[in-house]
Design a protein around this nucleic acid. Structure first.
Lengths: 198, 198
DNA sequence: AAATAAGGTTAATCTAGTTTAACATTTACT
DNA sequence: AGTAAATGTTAAACTAGATTAACCTTATTT
């Protein structure tokens, strides 16, 4: 279900945030499993219930919403050592508003709803850990709302490039445009202006 | 520090989400205090450390960011039975990016950083409760990002009006415009178009 | 009741970003 | 290597929403 190398990667991530006893680590590992997806495959589709919170061991995903006009709006990317799920769907176990799709071949550790609840019940430290992760994600989300209001497209792009240099390398430009809330054509224009400036 | 009526209001809210024993309730109440603010007063100012998570017993607040041009961007409003704090500042105990100001005379139950930690340590149910609150806030924040991308100003306004009819009544229109990410002039135009339509 | 301040409206002008469409470049596949 | 598909660029025409500025309406204060 989960190889020694994968276990190690997950525990290494965990231990950089909380200290688990060997028993707690073993308990955690006994409850989760690993799943591999190919580039292009969907982890969650709009309308399905999101059954897992997924920890990314390797690869890259995008979470996005498709609006009434069929336009895609990218909410977030996830790479190694980050999480992905439609949390709204997961916590209520109702149909998802968002899609999650792999932009590369991707390996995930899958935490089901019941497993998460069991882990919270048995290892209070883990509930604390997840609370803190979500707190940070919420803060980041609020700050993104403000940036979208207060900054121009150019400054949002510069911020993204500075904040997520690793992600920019791996992802087609038209998806970055979608994440920034602008068209690919306009991002292209912004980039050519930036080149002229320096 | 906290009156019987105020205690009752806080416990009523709590009990609609979690079940606390009388001892746990008493412990909680012994750790918090109530503070009253007048209309216009600041609970948190950009640059200060946010020392409390505040539960709103009565009144109304706005949280906002002031950008380099001096423009105000409203992130959220809080009314009765909701929480307010600059969570980014609170969880790291570093200077706040945002301001929180009272739009009416406001009565708050104040949870300091140390008290929150103590409550988490002594009442695991409370940590669970706060985790769930933040999960929901995060989901709402992500959905707001998507709405800001996918909807026109008019549709964002209609959504706001439908979702928060009570808040709309209490708040000047120019602040709703700021929350929606548009100018007061444009919101005025949107509203007059809506009147013509029906 | 007048005066002031705070909030809201209207309209003309302007601009950041969109749309459309044609073309260029890179990547992946046989 | 050659072709198709995916990604990126450029430029002209357009639009949602911003800006400016003048005016109107409603509360609040004296």
């Amino acid at each position: 279900m989960i190889s020694a190398i994968q276990m190690e990667a997950l525990l290494k991530y965990m231990s950089s945030h909380i200290q688990l006893s060997p028993e707690e680590e073993a308990f955690l590992l006994s409850k989760v499993f690993v799943r591999k997806y190919l580039k292009g495959q969907y982890i969650v589709q709009q309308g399905d219930v999101c059954k897992y919170e997924c920890f990314v061991l390797s690869g890259c995903t995008k979470m996005f919403y498709v609006d009434d006009e069929g336009q895609e709006h990218i909410i977030m990317f996830s790479i190694e050592d980050w999480w992905t799920s439609d949390m709204g769907s997961f916590i209520t176990q109702t149909p998802a508003d968002f899609n999650i799709q792999c932009l590369e071949n991707t390996v995930l550790v899958m935490f089901s709803y019941d497993v998460i609840e069991e882990l919270y019940a048995n290892i209070p430290k883990l509930e604390r850990f997840f609370r803190q992760i979500i707190e940070r994600a919420f803060v980041a989300s609020q700050k993104r709302i403000v940036r979208n209001f207060a900054l121009t497209a150019k400054d949002r792009y510069l911020y993204f490039r500075k904040q997520y240099p690793k992600i920019e390398q791996r992802i087609p430009q038209y998806m970055i445009a979608s994440y920034l809330g602008i068209t690919k054509e306009f991002l292209s224009k912004v980039k050519s202006q930036l080149i002229l400036e320096q």
